[in-house]
Design a protein around this nucleic acid. Sequence first.
DNA 1: TCGAACCTTGACATAAGTGTCAATGTCAAG
DNA 2: CTTGACATTGACACTTATGTCAAGGTTCGA
Lengths: 129, 129
Amino acid sequence: MRIGELAARAGTSARQVRYYEAKGLITSTRGSNNYRDYTETTLARVRQIRELLNAGLSTQLILAILPCLESPRDPIVFEGVTPETVAALQRERDRLSDRIDILTRNRDAVAEYLAELQRHARGSEPADS
Amino acid sequence: MRIGELAARAGTSARQVRYYEAKGLITSTRGSNNYRDYTETTLARVRQIRELLNAGLSTQLILAILPCLESPRDPIVFEGVTPETVAALQRERDRLSDRIDILTRNRDAVAEYLAELQRHARGSEPADS
DNA sequence: TCGAACCTTGACATAAGTGTCAATGTCAAG
DNA sequence: CTTGACATTGACACTTATGTCAAGGTTCGA
């Protein structure tokens, strides 16, 4: 599929798709005209990238963990997997865990604050029941 | 305390502290000289801000949820809390939950990938036992 | 009192991610 | 064949969060 369709189906812009390609997050083939051609797999990948970017990750980090995220990852590649690669992935996994912990802690604080607000509202204004 | 000490104790730079102040995340008093003066409370706040920025949140979002994050939040302010404020906080809480879900899903995928790598390593090279 | 170390504001620079526009090429439908 | 929709590259601009530097004011120890 061409870049316009890919972008539309991924809910993004062609500009962003080109950017992800420039960053090495996705690849494309080129036809006789110079147009980019993308596969369905790439579409899924772009959706994943969007999701992770929205969650606050950088393209660098996404690039690091993308190999782990292929959906039907049947023929998992073991060749060329150096101990350094494994260590890097473990670091990224831990960084993700840290982020999750921080966000969870703060999300809970927001929720608790909201609960107090609502307890107060119900206590001082016992209407609407 | 002055900006240098605050920055040092928060593990950041004076530049960033001024930036957070310009963004309304923290406040300071000014002495007879024009120097900023910060309290211990502000120090805790800056640490929290750093943590949230590192976790991928924007200063805008942090500004929205900061009122919920005061540590000993005893005299919780109910005055001027409009339904819009509550709705906004609920939205931010939900956005945080979405982020957490996405990060968790992807963290788990990385962890699973690592586990497969290690199963393979142990299977094909049963040394180091 | 002098100099080092700190503070002030303001400016300019950078990286990432994105928008937008221009000049041009391709293709399909009328 | 022309027109409109879509593709190409390249450039410029913007925002965020940050670094850095300059020109000046303040404080403090020797």
